[in-house]
Design a protein around this nucleic acid. Structure first.
Lengths: 215, 215
DNA sequence: AGGAGTCCGTTGCATATGCAACCATGGAGG
DNA sequence: CCTCCATGGTTGCATATGCAACGGACTCCT
């Protein structure tokens, strides 16, 4: 368990001893779930968030039509529900379900922000980590919105690829396959493929598999 | 100044005396800017965030083509740059410019999260407020992304309107005019108007000005 | 009254894109 | 070697939508 938490962004830069220590302040409230079991249910309030210790869980949304939309997948070490807890929502707009037998560590907002009686200085680090987590998600959503806000697939691709170039350099790999990229940019896979072909044809970009270059 | 801060989400639920007190811990670092002057410049690191005390500032992004995209407008009491600071970015992807003569209160991350020497308990409140701010923005972006991820304007409208209905009830007003709604949903104003007309025609919805109802 | 400005609906047209279907390639595993 | 499966490129077609232009209703100001 400590090894998992060391990889968790919420416990970033903490060693095993520090985590041991802070776990006592946090209450160490753990629970096991069976496959398919609901962890949070749409419509509930959100008094605590979770950290997945083992297994796999999914954030899902049930549509009016009865369908289920997969919002995101959570892997061991990841936190989920943090935004809802920090925003203090009284009605969860999504459900969280175990995709496998899973173990969850639950943390309450008060436990996170209160400087504990033990006056442990790691609290400050963990608060910083929580702020970082929310802020990074924010920037990620911001950038995605920025890409999608362009009306044509070509413009979406260009804004995305320019961003990747700025981060990784002249020749860069993208971490998504074609289908994932199409989903990410809210476009049809075949239409995206077509547009990529055209752009290569016109000499705007060059690519091979997942390696790209803007010309 | 205290009156402005009382309206600021970062100082939520604090009275004038508490704000006075916490300001001393925060350093009270203020600065005046003239119209057009840059407050943060694209490419800089982000060591501190700002709270607008008076005036107006804009978040802008310069495009490759030399154009300027207005990302968002900041009004007195609002914080800006918080996400970049909390995420610890070393390269700001946007610029912040004064749209009017403005006064800014600057706060550093360390000042926000460190329990101050004065051991003032308001720190905990402020940290909660910062978490809430980031989390709420998160949920806002999430919902917008959810609307936009639908491929047709009709579906975008439906998901948006259903959400508003869930929040406000059977008959609800939307806070955006047609042009703002079109921008928000990343659609063309005339196309959106056309689709609204069709939906009313088909008896799916009814509306008059900004008052809507789903049938 | 007249003029300017804002907001919103309407329409004709070109086209970008979703959709469905099919094929090619390459890797994994028997 | 063969089969199965995942990935991704291609294409025909219908249509949703961006774009540009215009007109009506309304407010505000002189």
């Amino acid at each position: 368990m400590i090894e998992i938490l060391q990889k968790s962004p919420l416990f970033r830069r903490m060693d095993a001893g520090e985590i041991q220590h802070i776990l006592r302040c946090l209450g160490n409230h753990r629970k096991q779930y069976r496959r398919q079991e609901y962890i949070f249910l749409e419509g509930e309030p959100a008094p605590r968030f979770g950290i997945l210790l083992s297994g796999a869980v999914q954030i899902i949304k049930e549509t009016k039509a009865g369908g289920r939309i997969l919002i995101s997948q959570i892997f061991p070490g990841d936190a989920f529900g943090l935004s809802y807890v920090c925003a203090g929502v009284s009605y969860l707009p999504i459900s969280v379900q175990a995709a496998d037998r899973s173990e969850i560590l639950f943390i309450e907002l008060e436990q996170l922000v209160q400087t504990c009686q033990n006056a442990c200085r790691f609290h400050v680090d963990m608060i910083k980590n929580a702020l970082r987590l929310l802020a990074e998600k924010n920037l990620f959503l911001d950038s995605r919105l920025y890409y999608i806000s362009h009306k044509t697939i070509r413009e979406r691709l260009q804004s995305y690829l320019e961003d990747q170039e700025a981060r990784q350099g002249k020749e860069f790999d993208i971490p998504l396959n074609r289908e994932e990229l199409a989903d990410f940019l809210c476009a049809d896979r075949s239409a995206l493929s077509r547009e990529l072909g055209r752009m290569k044809q016109e000499g705007i970009i060059d690519y091979h598999k997942n390696s790209f270059r803007i010309l």
